[in-house]
């Protein structure tokens, strides 16, 4: 892949007194799988803009072929994830006024995922991991046919429901960002959040602890908290999801006192990973049925 880092960062000169405000200098990544570089664009600043507004303005006025993924412009769809001045962030939630404009502002695509074009990456790795999360498995219903949960028991999981799947946490996680070879055996922070949500659910009965250790690779996480730092929804991913999961794995796997307790009290041993694996979407996936030819299809 040919890579050009583009124009060297320059200092944007101050305009003379009374002159209109200086232009914003934007360095946007342009390219695809065959190569790319930072391309410089200059636009007049407008008050109250976010980075996505500026990117859209460049697309509308200077680069109509610029590829950028976006949807809600409200920080709720998780589509416009990118790296702004090297920091993973949502373009629609990053105000231009928070960025130093005496230097060019760089906008590049998420680095952990394969490039498709310009600012758009292929995030399908995350969808493959999602298929491997063992599904919610509730216990039997109450005698009246209902299921009941105490409010205090579901309060803890509410934080995890805020996730918008922007995959910034996956992108910043050095386990796969810098060591891509770990992707086949590592779920990543977003899916540890999902697993924590299931493991803490008061009605769930499936024990995923061995599965999380063996198949989801939680031992690879060295809790450097970058996922928490970049989360636009302020989910405390490390403290409230990953570390509680690591402690559950200690209960199941590394704690001889807990092992002795299970022996004495007869509590069930942690479920084998292979058993949990049967509850994943991948285990239930049906081979795709051959498409039925419609009249007029070309064979």
């Amino acid at each position: 892949m040919a890579i050009d880092t583009g124009p060297a960062p320059t200092t944007v000169p101050e305009p003379p007194p009374g002159a209109p405000p200086k232009d914003l200098v934007m360095h946007l990544w342009r390219g695809d799988a065959s190569g790319g570089r930072f391309q410089e664009y200059r636009v007049a600043p407008q008050e109250g803009e976010v980075v996505l507004d500026v990117v859209h303005r460049i697309q509308a006025t200077q680069a109509p072929d610029l590829a950028v993924r976006w949807n809600c412009k409200a920080g709720k769809c998780g589509s416009c994830s990118a790296e702004i001045n090297g920091r993973p962030a949502l373009m629609c939630m990053t105000r231009m006024s928070t960025l130093p404009t005496d230097q060019p502002v760089t906008v590049s695509p998420m680095r952990a995922f394969p490039i498709m074009r310009d600012l758009v990456t292929d995030v399908s790795y995350n969808f493959e991991v999602a298929k491997l999360i063992p599904a919610f498995k509730p216990g039997p219903r109450d005698p009246d046919g209902l299921r009941r949960m105490a409010q205090v028991d579901i309060d803890r999981g509410q934080e995890f429901h805020k996730c918008i799947e922007c995959f910034l946490c996956q992108n910043v996680c050095h386990v796969i960002r810098d060591h891509e070879e770990n992707k086949p055996r590592y779920a990543g922070p977003r899916f540890f959040v999902r697993l924590a949500e299931l493991e803490m659910h008061p009605l769930d009965t499936l024990d995923r602890r061995n599965y999380i250790r063996e198949d989801m690779g939680i031992g690879l996480c060295n809790i450097t908290k970058c996922c928490t730092e970049v989360c636009p929804e302020d989910i405390h991913i490390t403290d409230n999801a990953i570390i509680p999961l690591k402690e559950r794995i200690v209960d199941a796997h590394y704690d001889p006192v807990a092992w002795l307790g299970r022996k004495i009290t007869g509590r069930p041993v942690p479920l084998a990973a292979a058993e949990a694996r049967k509850h994943t979407g991948a285990a239930h996936a049906q081979p795709a049925a051959p498409a039925t030819p419609e009249p007029g299809d070309i064979a």
């Binding site: 680095r111 394969p114 493959e128 992707k183 086949p184 055996r185 063996e214």
Partner: peptide
Amino acid sequence: PGPRPQPIPVRIGAPRAGPPRAVVLRKD
């Protein structure tokens, strides 16, 4: 370490964007 798990089906080595990894774009 441990038993060989079911690997996540993902393609490794596809081109990724950005300057060489050693280049730090952060300005803070």
